[in-house]
Design a protein around this nucleic acid. Structure first.
Lengths: 337, 337
DNA sequence: TCGTGTTGATAGAACGATCTACTAACTAGC
DNA sequence: GCTAGTTAGTAGATCGTTCTATCAACACGA
């Protein structure tokens, strides 16, 4: 039925010109006369020709594909990031190969190599916690453009696009302190995750600035999920001197902390102040509406895509970093006496 | 710095064998002796060779890429769908090209053609509302495997994977009626969207079954969003004889309806019964927890991917349809007198 | 009339792999 | 010693494009 796909050769034969001529026309060269151009166009639509971009790419050593490696698409922050990357890539003539590493460094390593085999023009990577240095080393020696996104990676020879986690956490804790809180918990996130380390540092910084002593029982570590906050908040509520407010590692944690608070008879945003992190869409429609640090995943994504494509176009440009200063979005959940 | 990428030819020269031999070894043929195999392997790691899969694909007329066209990644239903498709594709040795049509039929058309040019092995499409028949016609004449997902398309020569919207809505309305409701609204969604049409049909079916007359003022049309439900519910609440319950087009609508109810001094799940549609993760953590029809986007996605890959492997297999029967997940929001 | 451009089109080698067909060197059977 | 079969490896065409070099035809100026 489908036989073979019709190629440039059939078009050439059918239109009575050479293969080269057809190729030139396809690429919109002006060096071909109008009559022949029309003859070829006629042949194209008559035979139902479709361009084989991979063949062209093989010849020209180019590619319109960029690879995107994220941990988990299901996290709304990464969803927004991905959506933005796809959109700006598409607008600039690129397609994106999407893969999820599942926070597994080995898998991430294999995926990155596999993408290179598939001939991507460049790669955007959100490094998995515990990423192997060899992964990036290999990409560097291969000379393929890479943009690190969201989570910093200790190698300043790569472009980077991400939020300023330190400052974001600092702002949030500042706001809590201004509302009169002195005992402020930091809930959720796992040690070794660079984003969390930065957020924690911002949290400490703000406490220090206001001469509030550091109490390590107020920092709860846990793998963040849609339910993890329930246990996290229970732990600090059980303390002899419980906190009156908390900064959460992300909005998932914050929303589940709200449920946890209610289980203890406390109304979030009334009996306990809460600020989340990320600014994912559902923070706005939670009850009560969640105050949070808006990291603007879409902007991060757009920047990452632009930076990568910029480097693809111009491989030797100087390394650049785009660090976005987040916005503190105060809604209801941070209000409490 | 990066010169040229090292090819199979360099490896052959360096190991003192022919190009064909290297190729055989790369593909794990047993027809090559162990000593030469090792010599070649040594050359490979010494020169830092990376396989060029596109070149191989050109020769073998094959591809490990599948294209996925969805409307909007940002909708959690599609997020879950995409995540599942990516995962099962990856497990079966495929990568996915992700693009968003933005519910624009023209764009969808261009994208599908572009993916073909890029040489995808097959395509999973969630048809945009108002899709052009030519889009699918073209794909069919090109003979490229296509699986329609989520939203049905009136051409039974394509494989299909999606939820049973009719039955889902029917179940939900049944439950509402069992809880004693007689005036039940249907909120949100736009005319012309086949998913909505099926849901609406299920809604009517259930009413009819219980001899409840149809009141068109209880059906509110609107483009669904994270806030659209606020206005939708206001409209039916303003009626002389307002409803006591509602089935919502999706969970977005349902969650915003909750906010709308509160604005009118009503407690969702207490003064008004509410059932959503989709079963997106945040339905579980909403307040009160949202009762909803769980469409299992992950299963739909996994099925779609399996079906497509099955057809890629075996293009002439009979057309198949996988229709998933949703689960009614009753939490809190449907409870009301 | 001759050299010099310009225009429109082409032939044939690439790109990096695979595939088909073939061969040289052994082994085995009788 | 001869034929047949197996094993290990290779040469060269090929996939569908683009690129480099070249060419024929014609116009132009001196």
């Amino acid at each position: 039925m489908k036989d073979k796909r019709v190629t440039i050769n059939e078009i050439a034969a059918h239109a009575g010109v050479s293969r080269s001529t057809v190729s030139l026309i396809l690429r919109g060269s002006g060096r071909i006369s109008e009559p022949t151009r029309q003859r070829v166009q006629a042949a194209i639509s008559e035979l139902g020709y479709t361009y084989n971009r991979s063949a062209a790419n093989l010849r020209t050593q180019s590619s319109q594909a960029i690879g995107l490696i994220i941990n988990d698409l299901t996290n709304p922050f990464f969803t927004e990031l991905t959506a933005a990357i796809e959109q700006t890539a598409e607008r600039r003539g690129y397609f994106v190969y999407l893969v999820q590493s599942g926070e597994d460094p080995d898998h991430q390593h294999k995926l990155s190599l596999s993408m290179v085999e598939h001939g991507v023009a460049g790669l955007i990577i959100c490094p998995a916690t515990g990423s192997h240095p060899e992964t990036f080393e290999r990409l560097r020696t291969l000379g393929i453009p890479v943009c690190i996104a969201v989570r910093p990676w200790p190698d300043d020879r790569f472009d980077f696009a991400g939020p300023d986690n330190f400052r974001a956490a600092h702002m949030a804790v500042d706001a809590l302190i201004e509302h009169g809180h002195r005992r402020i918990a930091f809930l959720g996130g796992e040690r070794g995750n660079p984003s969390r380390d930065d957020r924690l540092a911002g949290y400490f910084g703000a406490l220090q600035k206001h001469d509030i002593g550091f109490d390590e029982t107020l920092v709860i570590e846990s793998r963040p999920s849609r339910t993890s906050g329930i246990k996290d908040v229970a732990k600090v509520l059980a303390l002899a001197d419980p906190p009156s407010a908390a900064l959460c590692y992300n909005d998932f944690v914050a929303i589940s902390v709200m449920h946890g608070l209610r289980q203890h008879g406390l109304q979030p945003g009334q009996d306990f102040a809460l600020i989340g992190f990320d600014g994912m869409p559902e923070a706005e429609t939670s009850f009560p509406p969640l105050s949070t640090v808006f990291l603007d995943a879409r902007r991060v994504g757009a920047n990452a895509a632009h930076m990568l494509i910029g480097r693809i176009d111009e491989p030797d440009r100087p390394v650049s970093r785009s660090v976005i200063v987040p916005d503190l979005v105060l809604r209801q959940s941070h209000k409490a006496s």
